[in-house]
Every structure is written in structure tokens, then in C-alpha cells.
Design a binder for these strands. Structure first.
Length: 571
RNA sequence: GGGCUCGUGGCCUAGUCUGGAUAAGGCACCGGCCUUCUAAGCCGGGGAUCGCGGGUUCGAAUCCCGCCGAGUCCGCCA
């Protein structure tokens, strides 16, 4: 497996020679942490501060000793002492050889790890099926889908799930809004069915009707269940699943909340929680006191006084089911769900489950005017963002490529627009809040998806022209002919891809992949400037550069794929 | 008021987990590069008391404490 990870091969060689050198010098218990030195100071470095502490010697001295005794072999050609550091230099031609072999040999599989044999259920989005998605909620599928793609590449068996809330007050409110629409439509035509139901819930008759429907729903009344299912499905199909597919997000499984009420598992959760020592009762409603269990000064109500369940109660049943089907569960949730998530974790612990979901919380997206609010009409919907992005991208394409037919322009505009949206959101750490600005969300240059797509299009264009020139065979390239720094920088960055994927998966950090992809595209652009491929007058060099371009194209493709961004052949 | 999160050039972000080599990019600004594979690109330049104050350490953007500012939660809502 390690032969698929060129950088790892080199690092292991460094570790092996360090091991023997350190043993020879009497530093037996050393734990070796390798780092990446600044440019021009080699490829792999060992800092000797930790050793200095154990050996009670100056780190400079130790570094010097190591550099003096180390025996190098394989792909490492040089080792230098620089102050408290030992810097290792990889043989550039050899790195080129093993990297190109790995990338060209594996193609789309380059960067992929062997199957780990672990199943992860990754729940994301799970937006209320009451309304269309706005850009704040859109952070959820973008983080979730990207992470799912990365985890798959890293060897996990991943299933993504969307938890459809077809129970509870909001679902009933939607249904009631739709029901009343026929009898007496709202005066205010800006209201959607959910907002209408919500408005009616402020009247005593509305509140009464909703409460009545809710009880029927929870007791499994067939007519009510059927209506709510139908109404929520309508919103899911029309407003949510469709929007998600526009940004390249396909969810593997939609899990309905009602399932857990109907199969009795929610009832079992309630019974079990009631037996807990931390359970208390307030006017007929049951709750768990969270303070002794998690230090949070809050009451976790898991039934209403009429005995019906609450959201977190049902979520516990869902998680019990989840853990019957996976080894690890990851949830992507808005930061407003922190307490609810804590309730679920506490509930699972009370029910003696030793597993707990790992949760990634993201901060809200706000507008420059302030927090988004549907009620105040201060909101940007995902569909509108997409439409605007496609429109602007189309103008950009037309500006540059008036030669292309309408259909190509449209396709490229779509790829660029969706890419820009996804990249812009996934590039930021989830816990940082985002203030939405059109010019940033639709940024098409610099650190953006189109920058990466452009590098891909350039690589594609070279290969296509090569083929037209009859140069489609470059299997017998000779890596030893490479010697330009831009070629080696590109190779080095390429060699880092498998490690990057593994790191992103381990840290559950999709934003690191965005940064890597941008850096790699930048390397490619520098190579493009410095090293003519088709125009190269030496046949053999042209061949090896073609191989390099093909490999770069593969890495760009694999990066973009994991980011859920399409790779255009031309733009 | 209490809990959790965030604070890095004019603006946006990486680096924080795991403390180490001159704090890394992008946008904007200034100056260059299209008779050679797509200028959505490339090269150069200016611009940072890493919110503030203490502490730990040979060494702190990074770890600890306090303060200030912002977000979020503290519903028999989801």
C-alpha cells in the first residue's frame, strides 16, 4: 500500500536511517517527529529540541552529531545540519520516478487508501422539511458532502444520511398551513405554507388544531400521518433534494423521524429514561437534570406533559438505530444544536450505549445587515445564490471565450458557479462565522475554485493538443530528464496528495483539502509558465513533461472530485 | 448572568490540535508580462505590536489564567 504514497516511502527511509543513527549515538528512547522545513532547506526535517531535553545537550550539537553519522540510502540523497535541525533532501529524479509511477499507474485511485473496514454514517443537512434552504443551512451539506468524499477516499465505508423531520410541531405546522390554504388562503402572498401555518398557530383555534394534529400524529393516526408525510415529502422534493443536487450533493439515505415513533423505539427510549436516577417530573412532563451528568445547568425535557415525545428524544432513538448499522457516527450540525446534541449524548449514556456521535458544529452565516431572518425578509436562498452565480459565471465565460457554442458556455458557467460556491464555503473552518458577501461568494479569481478548474483546463488543453499532434503515447518517459525547479516543485506537491487526504480524514477537516488544491494548482501554473511542453524542442523532454502534465491533471481531478467540484476540459 | 465558539496587514483566510527556522496565501492597491501549450494566469512591491494584559517555557499566533469585543445556546421548539 505504501508504494502508492511516494512521500511516505521517503519519510520511512528517513525514519529508518535516523533510527540506526540515534541508536549508534545512544539516543534510544527518542520519538521521532518529522516536519517540513522552509523552502531551500530540504524536504524533510528533524528538529532536535525534544532530543536535547532528554539528552541534556544543546540541540545544535545533537543535530550536528546526527548529520555526521547518518547513513543514507534509497531516495534520500543528502542530509545537512542547520542549527538545531537536521534537514533531509530527497533525490529529485527518484521522487519524480516513484511519484509519476504512482499517479499515472493509479489514475483516479491515486490518493486512495486501502479499505479500513469501518463503516461511518455521516449525517448532514437534516434541514426541516418546511422551507427551502438558505445559504446559512447550505454550509451543512457542503461540509458534510466534502467530508464524506474525503473519508471514502481515505478508505472508510461511508453512508450519508439526511434525517427528515416529519414529526413534531414544525411538520404539523406546515401541514396545517397547507390544509388551511385551501379553505382560506393567506392575505399576505409572500407567505409560504409553513409561514402561514406558523402565523395561524398564534390564534387560539390554530394552536388548538395544531396540538390536536400533533397528538394524532404521535399516536399514529393513519390519516394524519399520511397527510404529514405527503406534505413534508412535497417540500423535500421541491425545495431541498433538488437544491442539493444542484450543488452536487446526493444523500445516500433519507431517514424519517416518524419511523422511530411508529416502530415503538421512541416509547422504549422514554421508558428507559424515566427509570434513570436523574429523571424528574414537572407537571407531568419528564426531564433529565443535565447538571450532574454534563455540568450543564439545563433540564432536558424528553416528554411533554401530554406524554408526547420531543425532538431530542426521537433523536436518541435514531442514534440507537444508527449505531446498530455503523462503527462510527459523524453529525454535521449548526452551532445552535450544541445543547440538543449534548442531550442526545447524555441520553445514550443513560441507555448504556458506549458509543457517541462525533459532532462537527458550524457557525452561522450572517448577512452584512445582520442575522438572517425569513420573517424580516432578510435572507438569501441557496437557489437564488446558485442562479446569480451561474449568471455571473456565464458573463465571465462569454467575456473570454466568444468562440464557444452556447451549450458549452452554459455548462462551463454551471461548473464554475457551483465550484465557486462550494469552495468558498468549504475553505473556511466550520467553527468560524461567515458574513456573506456576494463578491466573495462569487469570487472567480485568486484563491477560488475557478483558479483550480483553470489549471485543470490548461492541463487538459495541452494533452488534447498533444493527441492531435499524434503524441498520445508517453509511457516511456524518462524522469531523469526533469531538471527545472518548477517541475520538481510540482512533483513534490503531487507526492503530498495521499498524505493530505489522510490528514483531512483524520482531522475531519475538509478545509485543508481546499488549501492543498489551491497550492497545487498554483504550482501547476508556475510550471506552465516556466516549462513549455508542446513547444519544447527536445523530444524526450517533451515526452516526460507530457507525463508530468497528465499526472498533474489527475491530481487536480482527484482533488476537485473530493471537493465535489466538477473539472472542465475547457473554460 | 452562566455554558460553548471565534478575534491574525484596509478586507477575507491558512497556521492553533502536536509550542521551534524570517507569521503563509488571496482580495484590494502600485509596477511589470499576451509574435510560444487558455492572462480566470505569471513576476515584483508596499502593507501585521497575531484583540488586550499576565503566566508557563531556552523558545508562544499556538499552552494556562484574567479582561474586552462578536456569535450561539440556556423552550413541555426543532
Amino acid at each position: 500500500m505504501k508504494k502508492y504514497d511516494p512521500l511516505k516511502i521517503c519519510k520511512e527511509e528517513v525514519i529508518n536511517s535516523l533510527d540506526s543513527a540515534l541508536k549508534g549515538l545512544g539516543y534510544n528512547e527518542a520519538e521521532l517527529k518529522l516536519e517540513t522545513p522552509p523552502e531551500e532547506k530540504g524536504d524533510i526535517a528533524l528538529s532536535c529540541f525534544a532530543l536535547a531535553k532528554v539528552a541534556k545537550k544543546a540541540p545544535q550539537e545533537i543535530a550536528q552529531e546526527i548529520a555526521g553519522t547518518i547513513v543514507l540510502k534509497g531516495n534520500i540523497e543528502k542530509c545537512e545540519n542547520d542549527g538545531p535541525y537536521v534537514n533531509f533532501y530527497i533525490n529529485k529524479q527518484k521522487l519524480a520516478e516513484i511519484t509519476l509511477e504512482a499517479v499515472l499507474g493509479l489514475g483516479d485511485d491515486y490518493g486512495e487508501s486501502q479499505p479500513i473496514g469501518k463503516k461511518i454514517i455521516l449525517e448532514h443537512t437534516s434541514a426541516n422539511p418546511t422551507d427551502k434552504l438558505h445559504i446559512g443551512r447550505a454550509r451543512n451539506p457542503i461540509i458534510g458532502d466534502t467530508l464524506a468524499r474525503i473519508l471514502k477516499k481515505a478508505g472508510f465505508d461511508v453512508e450519508t444520511q439526511f434525517y427528515v423531520d416529519d414529526m413534531g410541531k414544525q411538520a404539523v405546522t406546515l401541514s396545517y398551513g397547507i390544509k388551511m390554504w385551501d379553505t382560506k388562503p393567506p392575505d399576505d402572498d409572500s407567505l409560504g405554507p409553513y409561514q402561514y401555518g406558523s402565523k395561524l398557530s398564534n390564534t387560539s383555534s390554530g394552536a388548538e388544531a395544531i396540538k390536536d394534529m400533533l397528538q394524532k400524529l404521535e399516536k399514529g393516526d393513519p390519516e394524519t400521518s399520511e397527510k404529514v408525510r405527503k406534505d413534508t415529502k412535497m417540500v423535500m422534493d421541491k425545495d431541498i433534494t433538488l437544491s442539493l443536487s444542484k450543488i452536487n450533493v446526493e444523500v445516500d439515505r433519507y431517514v424519517h423521524e416518524s419511523q422511530f415513533v411508529q416502530d415503538g423505539s421512541v416509547e422504549k427510549v422514554i421508558d428507559a429514561l424515566k427509570k434513570s436516577n436523574y429523571c424528574e417530573n414537572e407537571e407531568g412532563a419528564f426531564y433529565i437534570d443535565l447538571e450532574p451528568l454534563s455540568g450543564k445547568k439545563a433540564k432536558f425535557f424528553f416528554t411533554r406533559s401530554d406524554g408526547t415525545s420531543l425532538y431530542a428524544t426521537r433523536d436518541i432513538a435514531y442514534h440507537l438505530w444508527k449505531f446498530e448499522h455503523c462503527d462510527e457516527a459523524i453529525n454535521i450540525l449548526g452551532e445552535d444544536h450544541k445543547l440538543e446534541s449534548e442531550q442526545v449524548k447524555v441520553g445514550l449514556k443513560i441507555l448504556d450505549l458506549d458509543k457517541s456521535p462525533e459532532v462537527i458544529f458550524y457557525s452561522f452565516v450572517s448577512l452584512p445587515e445582520g442575522r438572517m431572518s425569513t420573517r424580516k425578509g432578510r435572507v438569501v436562498f441557496l437557489d437564488d445564490l446558485i442562479a446569480e452565480a451561474v449568471e455571473r459565471a456565464k458573463n465571465e465565460v462569454i467575456k473570454r471565450r466568444e468562440d464557444l457554442p452556447e451549450q458549452d458556455i452554459q455548462e462551463i458557467a454551471k461548473m464554475v458557479a457551483i465550484g465557486a460556491i462550494r469552495y468558498n464555503i468549504v475553505g473556511v473552518q466550520p467553527e468560524k462565522k461567515i458574513v456573506f458577501k456576494w463578491e466573495e461568494a462569487l469570487n472567480f479569481e485568486g484563491n477560488s475554485a475557478p483558479f483550480i478548474q483553470y489549471a485543470y483546463a490548461r492541463a487538459s488543453s495541452i494533452l488534447k493538443k498533444a493527441e492531435e499532434l499524434g503524441l498520445k503515447e508517453y509511457d516511456d518517459y524518462d524522469p531523469s530528464l526533469l531538471d527545472h525547479p518548477s517541475e520538481f516543485n510540482l512533483i513534490k506537491e503531487m507526492a503530498r496528495f495521499p498524505e493530505t487526504i489522510a490528514e483531512c480524514a483524520k482531522r475531519r477537516s475538509p478545509h485543508l483539502l481546499a488549501a492543498y488544491s489551491f497550492g497545487f494548482a498554483s504550482m501547476f501554473n508556475q510550471f506552465y509558465r516556466d516549462c513549455p511542453v508542446l513547444g519544447c524542442d527536445d523530444d524526450a523532454i517533451r515526452i516526460v513533461r507530457l507525463a508530468l502534465v497528465a499526472a498533474a491533471k489527475t491530481v487536480l481531478h482527484n482533488s476537485l472530485f473530493c471537493l465535489g467540484i466538477e473539472a472542465p476540459q475547457k473554460m
